[in-house]
Design a binder for these strands. Structure first.
Lengths: 288, 288
DNA sequence: CGGGACTTTGAGCAAATTCAACCATTGTGG
DNA sequence: CCACAATGGTTGAATTTGCTCAAAGTCCCG
């Protein structure tokens, strides 16, 4: 862990550092259908607005930060938001850029990451529909956000949103609650990064993804009849998983193979995993 | 690195898991004078109250969450808080205990940590005067808090505080700001835990401690005249540092020695460090 | 001055990394 | 439509960082 890159390859690292700014590469990345509602598949950027431009019909209203608002308040909020679509691999915002906007994820998966000057990367989180990001404390983003799949976002201007927080205190409370939840999760991940073995890390990750899959609107965490096993989708690449867990792609790949050989999981391609016994995996995740 | 403890030694681990509940072992831990105000050295638990029990004279009022309140609001807050003193090594609250209280640190240093069933520990943070903790999102604490030095705390009942948040929205805003800052810091630490080498970890830690020392009331981050070098105190043990950085005590100790041999630091005992060239150390911390 | 807790240092080991080769999938251009 | 280049994933061999085990040195309080 924390092995320093010895032979620094500028092309690769700079490519990763600046990521891919060009908007045309949307191919070759799995577009998990469960991650998009039918509405979101339209070409219109106003994917979740009704005829009046209001958010009433938003599919993720019940899980996102808006879920504490009544229809009228939702109207106020919808007036200061605009909708945006990003294709897979596109950058949404970059570390050290001015933090002008807050983003709320409608469909798709986003990854947040931080980088060291030599290109070593840490993925600090994968975000799913209903999650928001961009509420940095400073004036600059402290992370880079990129689309893992095709993503639909609501974007808010930070100054305007701050004013609305003043008018609707319960919105601030809601954001505080969500931020606290994030902070708790990040402490759990520190335990993972600092103290868990590769096997424990991957087991923990798979179980976390079960929860995220379950939160997805069209919920894909398929549970077989009597709770024997779970099927999950992993939209992100092995590189993303490695950078999330503080490992290399080789180690991640090997641990997948080992979990398979040990009879804990089945693999259907690289992006679909069946957890044969979640309870047993949960024990592995804790080192038991 | 997430090496799993091979030879499980129950006595040690259980001692660490349950930590030391007995209140009488206060000896042998450095009591850094700069961490305590004169008032705090009195035996009275109401160390920062004036004659009316108000917080007007509180030495950390300007850095703690109370700094957005006027005198009257401070009065409201002081009515629902009680003061507590903990000696070094005492537990303040335990993981999975009901989260009834929020704590605000007046003097001293607190560590938050999480544990795995076999005793592996991750210190998720060191807290200094003005910091607060205990605002978990669930009903149970998600961490254990222990006194590193002798500590003075204000304690608030969570339900009562929640009511006050409703009355004084700017207090909620303030807490959100502080929580955001915490979250940013925790993302930076994920980068440290997942991607930095032992030397980079320790260098980063030392520089972080400079900032914390500077925030301390009697500020001990002594800066020599023309910015050549910084002197810092490290109240925590090598074990604490190791568990904070995801390393072993041996590795931490060796890295201290190596930084010394390389001419970057001077050591005065285990708990006082002189950083000869902070800028150079800062480069080391980033892997440059 | 003595004993316990903490820290430092040394020697060998092992988990995860680096380097390298091979395999699978997918999209492109002839 | 197929060959082939490109991207991503898997597997193997050798290396290395940081860990484990062990012993000696410090510091501090009683």
């Amino acid at each position: 862990m924390g092995y320093k890159k010895k032979h620094f390859t500028p092309t690769v690292s700079i490519a990763r550092y600046k990521a891919i700014k060009s908007p045309q590469e949307q191919h070759s990345v799995n577009n998990f259908s469960y991650l998009a509602t039918d509405a979101a598949k339209s070409t219109s950027p106003d994917f979740h607005r009704d005829a009046n431009g209001a958010c009433d019909g938003c599919a993720i209203r019940h899980v996102s930060l808006c879920n504490v608002l009544d229809t009228q308040e939702l109207g106020t909020l919808s007036k200061i938001s605009t909708d945006h679509r990003k294709s897979a691999k596109q950058i949404i915002c970059s570390e050290d850029d001015p933090a002008d906007h807050l983003f709320n994820i409608h469909t798709g998966v986003v990854r947040l990451s931080k980088m060291l000057p030599d290109g070593r990367r840490q993925v600090t989180g994968f975000l799913f529909p209903g999650d928001f990001f961009g509420l940095s404390c400073g004036d600059l983003y402290s992370f880079t956000a990129e689309a893992v799949t095709e993503v639909d976002l609501c974007r808010f201007s930070r100054p305007k949103l701050r004013a609305i927080f003043r008018d609707i205190p319960k919105l601030g409370e809601r954001v505080l609650d969500m931020t606290r939840t994030e902070l708790d999760a990040s402490h759990a991940r520190m335990l993972l990064l600092g103290r868990k073995t590769a096997r424990e890390k991957l087991s923990t990750f798979l179980l976390d993804m079960v929860k995220k899959n379950a939160l997805t609107p069209n919920g894909a965490a398929d549970e077989t009849s009597d709770n024997q096993g779970l099927l999950i989708d992993l939209p992100m690449s092995r590189t993303d998983i490695a950078d999330f867990l503080g490992l290399t792609i080789e180690t991640v790949s090997r641990q997948f193979s080992l979990l398979h050989k040990a009879g804990h999981i089945e693999l259907d391609g690289a992006h679909r995993v069946f957890l044969k016994d979640p309870d047993q995996l949960s024990a592995l995740a804790e080192g038991l």
